[in-house]
Amino acid sequence: MKKSLRAAGLAAAAWTACIASAQAADDTDWPRHAVRLIVPYAPGGIADQMARITAEALQAAFNQPFVVENKPGASGSLATSYVAKSKPDGYTLLVGLAAPQTLNQFIYKLDYHGLNDFAPVALLNTNPLILAVHPTLPVKTVGDVIAYARKYPGKLNFGGAGGLTQFAGEVFKYDTKTDMVHVPYRGGAPAVAAAVAGDVQMTFANYSDVQPWIESGRLRAIAITSPKRYPRNPDLPTIAESGVPGFGMDGWTGLLAPAGTPPAIVRKISAVVRKALNEPAMKDKLEAMGSPPGDMSPEEFRTFMAGEIKRWQGFVAESGIKVE
């Protein structure tokens, strides 16, 4: 009997060692086939742009296809939930954004946690939002927007794609005690296109999505959502300095994997992404887009996300804001 138990124990130990060895080999050999980068919004916006830039860098480094897939819906939460439930083997990655990872869980009923269900890989970029209006709207400053909204309650509408492009407007409404209507779109680019066409009067849009239309005169920039002015556009005032003290938010994009993804794979991806995005030419390109690159280790990115979650949880609880 003792010999049988001993034999069984040795067999179990051998099996465990075999699994560990196979896992190590998997981590070392990754990637052996195509990897998917899931984007929570429609093509054309900042998340999609960053996904394609990142995919190109990873494909060059690992000599395997890195395929971008857009899965818009539910204010970015559809794709986020999909990746949270995916196999943690490094072959399904998420191009996550600030709201689906840190904010949505406090205003919607979700089936994932923005941090606990993921392995943070790298912060790809940060990006301010710009409050922009159609040129036919008779406003040129934040004060003008507030006055117009108060004069015509419920008549001023703004396009957004869920997440911060919507929530910036909701916070603006709360801080200024105005009544404006959000019109939802499936991505930042479609929301901006609606503002350009005059289907909505204004938008809170990612800098990179809206800047070309501002330069062409098809939209008018009013202010930036960041706490400080953006160095590449120093003449554009912040909302905070324009009569809404304390207002300040930046968007960001990050690369994440499902929780449980082997740390060795996470580190491999992170090292390539951080190096590629901070090459001088790429860094200059991203800064010109209004999307300066991030440069955080997986551990630093996790700490950053935890801080963002705590900040938004506190604000939603304090303000009682509800998003329809």
Rank of each mutant, 00 (worst) to 15 (best):
N63I: 00
D48T: 05
S75K: 11
Y82T: 06
Q49K: 15
A99G: 12
M50C: 00
Y41V: 13
A84L: 06
V39M: 05
P88F: 11
V95G: 07
A61M: 04
L78D: 00
L78I: 01
D48E: 03
A98M: 06
A99P: 09
E56L: 11
A61S: 15
V68F: 12
A74E: 15
S86Y: 13
A60P: 00
V83D: 03
V83R: 12
I38F: 02
M50P: 00
G44N: 10
N63F: 09
G73H: 04
A47L: 15
S86A: 15
A61G: 09
F66A: 07
P65W: 09
I53F: 10
S81A: 12
A42N: 09
G73I: 03
A57N: 02
N70L: 10
K71S: 05
A99Q: 07
R52D: 05
G44S: 13
S81N: 11
S75R: 13
M50V: 02
G73V: 05
L37I: 00
N70R: 12
P72F: 13
V68H: 11
S81M: 08
V67R: 11
N70M: 13
Q59M: 00
G73L: 10
V83W: 10
V68D: 05
L93C: 08
E69N: 13
V39W: 06
Q64R: 15
A51E: 07
K85G: 03
A42S: 14
G45I: 01
A60R: 15
D89R: 04
F62D: 02
I38Y: 09
P88I: 06
N70Y: 13
A98C: 10
A84M: 07
A51S: 15
L58Q: 02
N63M: 04
R52F: 00
V83G: 12
